[in-house]
């Protein structure tokens, strides 16, 4: 009962979606529209579940006074503030519980949620990702130190693409005559992106698609059941 009904539900919902691709008429088309709407609503609750799980984990660290618990408390507070601002005054054109928050928006220049997003969230996220520019260099050094044909190909392609996308790369090969324009670094970078890269990406996409089709059918047919969890 606890395992069979979910398996039947997955089978039926999966089968309806697949049928609707081949029979795009009522009732399949309308059922699939409803099913996709349901999917979005349930996914929204899944997001809520994820947030609840995160809060629970952080709250446990705060309550047990584990190392650096103060930072986890700050994380919970910043989450609460963001949710509160979004719920009370809304975001962008969306109104919150207290409406559009015209007075507070006039004071801040924009809604509190959007203000926090622009002045705190965006700088934090951009700086965190830009930090990877430093670590990617040391990672590259470790990768390229291995002397094999494969690692050399990887390094040469990376260097050509990096140089080909900068003014420095253009300057390096700019002196080459027009008859050798294929060897200009920007053209070489374009060639790598257009042909060998396309070929490899296409091979990955085709192989991954075969894998996705196989595992999708396994789930729909009930062969793959790991998403049901344990036997409790």
């Amino acid at each position: 009962m606890k395992r069979n009904i979910p398996l039947i539900l997955a089978f039926v919902s999966g089968l309806i979606v697949i049928f609707s691709e081949f029979i795009p008429h009522r009732p399949f088309s309308s059922i699939v529209d409803s099913l996709q709407e349901w999917f979005m609503i349930i996914s929204g609750f899944a997001m809520l579940l994820g947030v609840m799980s995160l809060l629970r984990m952080n709250a446990a660290k705060v309550s047990t006074r584990s190392p650096d618990w103060q930072y986890h408390l700050i994380g919970i507070i910043s989450f609460g503030l963001m949710v509160l601002m979004g719920a009370l005054w809304g975001m962008e054109e969306q109104a919150g519980i207290l409406g559009q928050g015209a007075s507070i928006s006039a004071w801040l220049g924009k809604k509190p949620f959007d203000y926090t997003y622009t002045h705190v969230f965006v700088p934090l996220s951009a700086t965190l990702f830009s930090l990877l520019a430093f670590f990617i260099a040391s990672a590259a050094y470790r990768a390229f130190i291995i002397r094999t044909l494969e690692s050399n190909l990887l390094m040469i392609a990376a260097v050509i693409v990096i140089l080909g996308r900068t003014g420095f790369g253009t300057m390096l090969t700019g002196w080459l005559p027009e008859s050798y324009r294929f060897w200009h670094l920007p053209n070489l970078a374009d060639y790598i992106m257009q042909y060998p890269n396309t070929a490899a990406q296409r091979a990955i996409m085709i192989s991954a698609a075969l894998g996705v089709i196989g595992s999708g059918l396994r789930i729909i047919l009930g062969i793959e059941r790991s998403y049901l969890g344990g036997d409790k």
């Binding site: 994380g75 910043s78 969230f121 996220s125």
Partner: peptide, 14 residues
């Protein structure tokens, strides 16, 4: 880092 985590979760939820 923790402020970023908190704001990301809050932003995603809203």
């Amino acid at each position: 880092e923790q402020i970023f985590v908190g704001l990301s979760a809050g932003y995603g939820l809203i």
